[in-house]
Write a protein that binds this DNA or RNA. Structure first.
Lengths: 168, 168
DNA sequence: GCAATATACTAGGACATCCAAGGGTTTGGA
DNA sequence: TCCAAACCCTTGGATGTCCTAGTATATTGC
């Protein structure tokens, strides 16, 4: 998108924070800002890898979740909870995946309120192929070394637990 | 948004990856997914803290950037580069900040193509107050301990440099 | 058994981000 | 000098996310 900057803007921000008397919160500010920016970079890579499949990250996540479900189907509210996104976001994703013929909606056999999302045969194939590309092009070339990956999993896992994501 | 899950969905995904023969990329997959989710949690906290000011994170970042500029003004393309966002996003943010009376647009004195963004007096006050709230409510209670903050800054700093964010 | 409450999904609106395209300005080479 | 290429910003279109509200179905309590 843009040429590399001559200097790290987040390090500059950290310096500004220190100079304005907020030295105590300057490091967490820098860490949080770095997380925001890193997410942006990773999302761009992921969406780039998924573009040939006509998928976005949101739709891929739903597809992958379904492909790991034993029966290949899941209630919408379950998907919303597992993906940690708003129910309306799932509705949106399902609308488009259904339009592409990758999933279908069907009524829940016993609960009339619930809608089941089910992978189609094509959806299962696309999920498999997209995962293979993500594995080789993104996850396999993350740029994090093994030790740092472990650190990230540990640090962010603790954070998410404390934030109330899961009980464990 | 949702009740805590009984188990960590990212740890489950990592297990699924291992069981499907992708054990080599399972850890980076988990780390990257954790970054995506952590960003989501942090963004929600930040936007919550900024809501009373009528600001979003995107608009706050622009406001903060201007408040640190000596003259309190910056060309749009400079802001776009420093914030690492698309020029149209800056246009959008400036439109709204201008509508709220926090910034003004003015023509560049020598380059007719360039538009300068300038903080208003009120904009400067709002930036100061919003920063104070963010410092106490978000950065001051990040949930990361000091050692982990250092790790994050180091790991993500290396990643961003390798990704071409900055040369340093 | 029926009303009140809770749950599940969808519709419409507000924002933010990106891409593609267009109009004005500046720069540099023929 | 002059015109093409490069640059800057804005507009319009597509996507995703969240919130609020509304409809339909289940469950609970009197």
């Amino acid at each position: 998108m843009a040429a590399p900057l001559p200097r790290d803007p987040i390090a500059d921000a950290q310096r500004n924070w220190e100079e304005h008397g907020w030295a105590d919160v300057a490091p967490p500010m820098a860490a949080i800002t770095a997380i925001m920016r890193t997410q942006q970079i990773l999302l761009a890579r992921i969406e780039g890898a998924l573009k040939p499949f006509g998928l976005t990250f949101a739709r891929y996540e739903l597809l992958a979740l379904l492909s790991f479900a034993r029966s290949g189907e899941l209630p919408m509210n379950k998907a919303s909870a597992l993906l940690q996104v708003h129910p309306t976001s799932v509705t949106n994703a399902v609308d488009r995946l259904e339009g592409s013929g990758l999933v279908t909606r069907s009524p829940h056999p016993t609960d009339g309120r619930t809608t089941l999302i089910e992978l189609t045969a094509e959806g299962r194939i696309v999920a498999k192929r997209a995962t293979a590309v993500l594995n080789t092009e993104v996850f396999g070339q993350s740029g994090f070394d093994a030790a740092d990956v472990d650190q990230l999993i540990r640090i962010l896992g603790t954070f998410r637990r404390n934030a109330g994501d899961f009980a464990d």
